[in-house]
Design a protein around this nucleic acid. Structure first.
Lengths: 103, 103
DNA sequence: ACAATACTTGGTAAAAACGCCAAGTAAAGC
DNA sequence: GCTTTACTTGGCGTTTTTACCAAGTATTGT
């Protein structure tokens, strides 16, 4: 019943892959469908090499698939349920200290 | 619409609060109920001050409540649904074992 | 009051993450 | 072939995170 170390390290990899503003933004953007690296570079406004490294982190965590087509590399989410995950995430903390239902 | 910056920064805080092996282990342990700091120190095997700082990170992210009773400080999860969250997390990546060349 | 326990906070050194530039690879077009 | 485009990888300085020790606070017990 206690946590398996393998499962935990897998969880950590996924969590870390989302624990950066650019990577979270990428994950959110990919919910609408695949994007090539240069589109994601425009989205996050960082150097192409930086974005590429972020994508590598996410891919190695198992979050993304990549596919090269012509000159472009397209990334897409491997999971259909990231939206669920985010709602789950937003629901994690009942209230920080402020009002609720402010959206 | 793209993500709100405020919502994203809150998401990031929560995700970061879980993106460390000791903190994830703490979160998992607290699913069974509140624990005092020294119990959690025994669990993660780090210095008491280290554990205390981890707990501060988690509390500031909104994940934990603390309550002092006597000499002890007890921490508990603020959310009832961390288990759901973890299942959601484990479900994020369809095929665990599949890894694309890591080089 | 004094001592002990349980924790927090400050300081700091080490480790990890980050981001840019430069260089390298691969596909497409000429 | 050579050039361009799209991306990846290596290198390296900068920033952030982490973990310990030491010192401080609060409460309990004597």
């Amino acid at each position: 019943m206690s946590s398996s170390a393998a499962r935990d390290s897998r969880r950590i990899a996924v969590i870390k892959a989302l624990a950066h503003p650019s990577r979270l933004a990428i994950a959110e953007a990919l919910q609408d469908g695949e994007r090539c690296v240069c589109e994601l570079r425009d989205l996050v406004g960082a150097d192409l090499s930086t974005v590429s490294k972020h994508l590598t982190v996410m891919r190695k965590a198992g979050l993304l698939d990549m596919e090269k087509r012509g000159l472009n590399v397209f990334y897409r989410l491997r999971c259909p349920c990231l939206m669920n995950f985010f709602e789950c995430l937003d629901g994690l903390v009942p209230e920080p200290a402020s009002r609720r239902s402010a959206r």
